Simulated assay, not measured.
Amino acid sequence: MDIQQKKAVEFIRKAMDHTGLDATNLARRAKIAPSTLTRILNGTVKNTLSARTIIKVAEIAGLPNPLTVDEISPMKNIPLYGYVGAGDKVYPVESDGPIDHVTTPFSADIDVSALIIRGDSMFPVYWEGDMVFFSADRRMDPRDLLMTECIVYLKSGEVYIKQIHPSRTEGKYMLISYNAPPILEQEIEWASPIIFVDRRNRKS
C-alpha cells in the first residue's frame, strides 16, 4: 500500500469514528458506492479516493476538507503530455517534454501528469475533453492492474484509457470500453492507474 492509499485509509477511518458509521453506511450517507470505501479499506484496489469522494465524505462526517488549506484549495501546475484515446486512436506527442502545463483541481504529488481524452468509448464515465491525471513515473505491470481503469501505453505506440482484462494469449491483454467493442490481444508496454478526472472542460 503506497502513501496515498494509506492516507485514504486513515481519512476513511477518521470519518467512520466521527459518524459512528461503518464504511458501507458512511458511503450510503455520502451517496457514493459502498465498494468505493470498502475496497480501499480492504486493500483490494490500486488507486485511491477521488477529490469529489473526499469532499462528500468530509461533508457527511463534519471533517475539514483535507484538500484545502485555510479554506483555499491547494493548486499545482503539472505537465500536460497530450491526448489519450477513448475510442480514438492516439499516439504520444513526439516531444522530449510536455506540450503545456495545467493547474490541478486537487492537491497533486510531484510526479502527477495529465492527458486529455479523445473519443467517447468510455462514456458515460469519461467524456471527450475530460482531463485525466496519472503518475507517469508509476509505470506498473499490467498483471497488477487487471479490472482497473488505466492509462495504457501499447507496444504498438497507441495510448488509450481502458480497463485491462486478461487475454487467452500469455503476455497479451484485452482492453475493455464501456460502450465499444473490446480491443483484443494487445501487448502493453506499461500502464498507470487513473488518479483523478477533471470534467470542467468536457465536450457536451
Results as ranks from 00 to 15, higher is better:
Glu170Val: 12
Val197Tyr: 05
Ile188Arg: 02
Asn25Ala: 03
Ser135Pro: 07
Ser50Thr: 12
Ile40Asp: 11
Gly171Lys: 12
Ser35Ala: 15
Cys150Val: 09
Arg13Phe: 00
Glu71Gln: 00
His165Phe: 10
Pro34Val: 09
Gln5Pro: 05
Asn42Cys: 15
Ala51Met: 14
Gly82Ala: 07
Thr169Val: 15
Pro92Ala: 03
Pro64Lys: 00
Val125Pro: 00
Thr24Tyr: 03
Val90Asn: 01
Val159Tyr: 13
Val102Gly: 00
Arg168Gly: 10
Tyr126Thr: 04
Ser204Cys: 14
Ser121Phe: 06
Phe134Met: 03
Gly97Ile: 00
Arg138Glu: 05
Ala58Thr: 08
Phe11His: 01
Asp109Gly: 06
Asp70Asn: 11
Ala33Gly: 10
Ala86Pro: 07
Val102Pro: 00
Ile54Pro: 01
Lys6Phe: 05
Arg29Met: 13
Leu26Cys: 12
Ala86Asp: 02
Arg200Ile: 10
Asp144Trp: 05
Val45Asn: 12
Val93Met: 02
Phe133Trp: 06
Leu67Asn: 13
Leu41Val: 10
Thr36His: 01
Ser113Phe: 02
Phe11Asn: 01
Thr44Glu: 15
Pro193Asp: 02
Val93Arg: 03
Pro74Thr: 10
Pro92Leu: 01
Ile188His: 04
Met122Leu: 06
Arg39Val: 11
Cys150Ser: 03
Pro182Val: 09
Ile164Ala: 02
Val159His: 12
Gly87Glu: 04
Arg139Asn: 07
Asp137Asn: 13
Arg29Gln: 15
Thr24Val: 14
Met140Gln: 04
Ile161Trp: 02
Pro92Asp: 04
Leu67Thr: 12
Tyr81Phe: 08
Thr36Cys: 05
Thr104His: 01
Leu67Pro: 06
Leu115Lys: 04
Tyr83Glu: 09
Arg29Val: 15
Leu41Met: 14
Tyr173His: 14
Lys46Met: 13
Ser73Leu: 15
Thr38Trp: 00
Pro166Cys: 13
Ala136Met: 11
Asn42Arg: 13
Leu175Asp: 04
Glu128His: 11
Pro181Cys: 01
Ala86Ile: 06
Leu146Pro: 07
Ile55Leu: 15
Leu41Phe: 08
Tyr178Gln: 14
Ile12Cys: 01
Leu175Tyr: 05
Ser95Arg: 08
Ser135Met: 05
Ala58Ile: 06
Gln4Lys: 09
Ile195Asn: 08
Ser177Cys: 11
Lys6Val: 14
Lys6Pro: 09
Lys31Gly: 12
Gly20Pro: 05
Gly97Cys: 03
Phe133Ile: 10
Arg200His: 11
